[in-house]
Simulated assay, not measured.
Amino acid sequence: MAFDRMDSATYLASLLAKNFSRALQERGHKLGFAPGQFPVLLELWSEEGLTQKQLIDRLDIEQATMANTLSRMERDGLVVRRRHPTDRRAQQIFLTERAREMESEAKEAAIAADQSLFSGFRRFERELMLEYMRMAIANSARE
């Protein structure tokens, strides 16, 4: 049986994720964040003071990956860690002023990256694709 990668949803999703990451990387680099840091920033813009474990659970990221991401974000001046007030083993993650100030520009960069990938799509086509992507993600979560 012949395998055409351009008929493979798995291959295409991987390629699309890589292209989105590249589009966001170009825009994010100018602001001072990497694509892998963006989901963490989104969570912290929504709710600061989360622990590493809470971020791992919310973003479904491996512990080692999250630890490395947070270390880089701390090094880059985007987050600070503080001892948790009631759990001595945990640390809470807070945004720096620099990270707080870049929120609107970072979200605009992500929207611009989206728009560049959806260039030429009619509105209903974009909405349909997003709905199909959500359905596929929901299906994969059930496995």
Rank of each mutant, 00 (worst) to 15 (best):
A2Q: 12
R5D: 03
M6V: 08
D7A: 12
L12R: 15
L12V: 15
L15V: 14
L15A: 10
K18Y: 10
N19W: 10
F20H: 09
S21N: 14
R22K: 12
L24H: 08
Q25H: 15
E26Q: 09
G28D: 02
H29Q: 13
K30C: 00
K30H: 04
K30Y: 00
K30W: 00
L31C: 01
G32N: 05
G32A: 04
A34H: 13
P35A: 10
G36N: 10
P39D: 07
V40T: 14
L42Q: 15
E43L: 11
L44Q: 12
L44R: 14
W45L: 05
S46D: 15
E47A: 13
L50R: 15
L50G: 09
K53W: 07
Q54V: 09
Q54S: 13
D57Y: 13
L59R: 15
L59V: 14
D60W: 13
E62M: 06
Q63C: 00
Q63M: 01
A64L: 12
A67W: 03
N68L: 00
N68Q: 05
S71Q: 12
D76G: 01
G77Y: 10
V80Q: 07
R83P: 05
H84Y: 04
H84F: 04
P85E: 10
D87F: 13
A90W: 02
F94G: 08
F94S: 03
R100A: 02
E103I: 01
S104E: 15
E105Q: 14
A106C: 04
A110Y: 07
I111V: 11
I111A: 07
I111W: 11
A113Y: 06
A113T: 06
S116M: 11
L117N: 02
R122Q: 14
R123P: 00
R123L: 08
R123V: 07
F124R: 12
E125P: 06
R126L: 07
R126I: 02
R126E: 05
E127T: 08
L128N: 11
L128G: 03
L128D: 05
L130N: 07
E131W: 14
E131M: 13
Y132P: 00
M133Y: 12
R134Q: 07
A136F: 08
S140G: 09
A141C: 01
R142T: 09
E143N: 05
